[in-house]
Amino acid sequence: MFDYLLLLSIQKIQAQRTISSIYHLLKGKKSIQTIQDSYLFNLSFLFGVYSKLERRDFDEAILQLHKRHYLLFLDNENIATLTDEGAKYLEQLERKYTPLYFDGMKYDKQPEKLLQIIYLLTQTTTYLASNQNRFLPIIDDMNAQKAVKKYLKETNISMEETVINIYQDLKQALTIFPTTTSEMIVDTLTTPRQTGLTSFQLADKYSMSTDDIHLHIMHFGHYIVQQSHSGQLFQYLTYFLAKEQSTKVLTYSAKQTLTLLQKGYSLTEVAHIRKLKIATIEDHIIEIIYCNDSFNWAEFLSEEMLSMISTVIDKTQTVKLKLLKNQLPEDFTYFQIKLGLALYHKGER
């Protein structure tokens, strides 16, 4: 799974970004560059799907792919492309792992959170249903514990019924996954009959890396979020998400900029008030465009300019700013081109 996501990302960024950008993407780094790139290269579904990824492990995985001749390094190993063998391997992995349910940019921290809730809810209800009131909660997070407690207090459904509900949903959800994933998820559950296995133990049992294990579990997490949003399975889990509104990612700084812009301040004024460079505020605006559908961009770019930019992108099939700028009239600024690119990508999606 890790190999698959790495090769897929390398293929999609078409040697236009460094290897590190993939690391930041998987980690979900909330920087304008990373967010922007993820849309640019149609990789926003992988944004933050592996937030615990460590640089060491990432580098090692890339090195292994290179050793197996799937990658070719260019420019001092900072940039990589797939070899023919790599492309073949990617196809093979694609058959194995699709469909993918990841939607990182949309779900943000929700999959991680709901997995914790599932673990805790499963443990709590199975223990209580078998009349065992004493147990150590397997999830340490105080907020998750409180939420589960509150939920069980408020719901009218009996404990036995809750267990059955979770059981049925888990069973149905797991049916659509490869057997290995289903086996693995069952192994992670803690009930009076078994203690969940750690990722190291799972790695040993299934002869995979801990990275793979983590991604398989996260993949299931994304599926759970998707299902509970669409009301198919795990409906009760929406209870635990209720408080969060817009789930799309906006950096804190960009949020502040947005607030000021909405109050009617101009771009220059915002820069002045916030003691930031104009270029920084411009980057915030790009970020806002990606995340916010209702933002009014008309004062920065005319419809006519946008259509000119779109035409050039269609013609050149590039996302390199410099190339685009060369094809456009002199008075187009980089900011406007970036803005056009963002709108182009959003329109396309």
């Binding site: 078998s130 888990l170 289903s182 998820i185 069952v186 009930t191």
Partner: peptide, 18 residues
């Protein structure tokens, strides 16, 4: 199978109570 295990770890107690 995972199906058998899932029902074993989650339901056994509940089912026998019924």
């Amino acid at each position: 199978s995972w199906e058998q295990r899932l029902s074993f770890i989650m339901l056994q107690d509940v089912l026998t109570n019924e």
